[in-house]
Design a protein around this nucleic acid. Sequence first.
DNA 1: CACTATGCGGAGTGAACGCTCCGCTTCGTA
DNA 2: TACGAAGCGGAGCGTTCACTCCGCATAGTG
Lengths: 214, 214
Amino acid sequence: MKSDVRVRGSERALRRDAAENRQRLLDAAATVFSERGLDVGVDEIARVAGVGIGTLYRRFPTKDALVSELVRQVYDDFLAVADEALSAPDGEGLEQVLYGTGAILASNRGCLSRMWNDDETRILRDEYRRILFELLARAKQHGRIREDAVDADLDLIFWSVRGVVATTRGVTDTGWRRTMAIMIAGLRPGADTLDASPMSAQHVAQIIDNMSAR
Amino acid sequence: MKSDVRVRGSERALRRDAAENRQRLLDAAATVFSERGLDVGVDEIARVAGVGIGTLYRRFPTKDALVSELVRQVYDDFLAVADEALSAPDGEGLEQVLYGTGAILASNRGCLSRMWNDDETRILRDEYRRILFELLARAKQHGRIREDAVDADLDLIFWSVRGVVATTRGVTDTGWRRTMAIMIAGLRPGADTLDASPMSAQHVAQIIDNMSAR
DNA sequence: CACTATGCGGAGTGAACGCTCCGCTTCGTA
DNA sequence: TACGAAGCGGAGCGTTCACTCCGCATAGTG
């Protein structure tokens, strides 16, 4: 019986050693990019994985394709967290998913700057955001979040936390949690309205489209 | 009488044409880096300034030195805003300086990622932060900010806003203001405490030290 | 005006890096 | 075990980019 290790089911099955090497490359890339940023050269990734450069390029046609695969995995994780949060009671799912994705961001520091835009990633991201916005609506219904909060405010939280994670990289993990706590506190129902108008949905869409434009 | 155009007073006076070219280089760098990021090549800066590459390198020994000078100017602006805010009444100076520096960040998008660490910049930055923390204390005294807010939370605001500015670059200016409003709202006196502990001063110091380590 | 220190331009250099190519090796099958 | 398809390593290519070098130009003085 033929082994069934496939690359996302779309291509021919890889030989056993090739499949192993592919995984070692992904692991090495996740580690190295996390620790030292996306600017590390591909030869370093190959070295850490214990394979040649040629092997890397047979499995991933470009460096971008390798990063893209890592980003896709991050969105997979996001989506798992979001699905889980859908069953939280009392509108608490929003906070659950925000802290959950924050933790994922914090442990994937290297992939922060370029959140890819290929078809597959786009689908995952759209689904993740759909759930996020649903959870925001529920949180509002339960009075945990102020009525004048909008979907785009969640994107702001994401970009803010991402900025803090990138800055505090390798020194502390408390930074992003504190940021998250402050921003959630700022979105709690309160007497006075916020001092600034939210981003329009069009602007957000444009920003996300630019996200992997280099 | 000899012209007195000097480079921060420390070196011999430049010839008039050289001083002009130096300023054109700084202006060009500010524009180009703002619009297209720090990855733009030095030859592009020289082209926009209307001078040769050699001229650029006679005035600034490395590309980093050029960026560093821009960053220094940004801190100059920060300090001016902070000084101004010191005379605001009723503990409102903090919000004034936060929105002020946010606006400066937003109009200097290119210098966001690497906030330099040479001696001169360090002095400006320390002075700016000293004032910022003084204004936080006053804001607390006037009951505008919660008692359990700490100095490090202001650094978090800065890094968050910087992340949002970098992400929304060129699309909208409302993003960072909304972020600022949400975070300030989160730091208003409130019933329940924040869900996360603040960063330690040591961690903050370490992060700032790493800031231009590349 | 003449003279020199200062400044200028831009071709060229070296290093870094993404990526290719090809001779050799290994897996998996029959 | 024998064989071919698949995989492997890494030298080397082309490009990009920060930076240098040097022959020519010009400002500013006496």
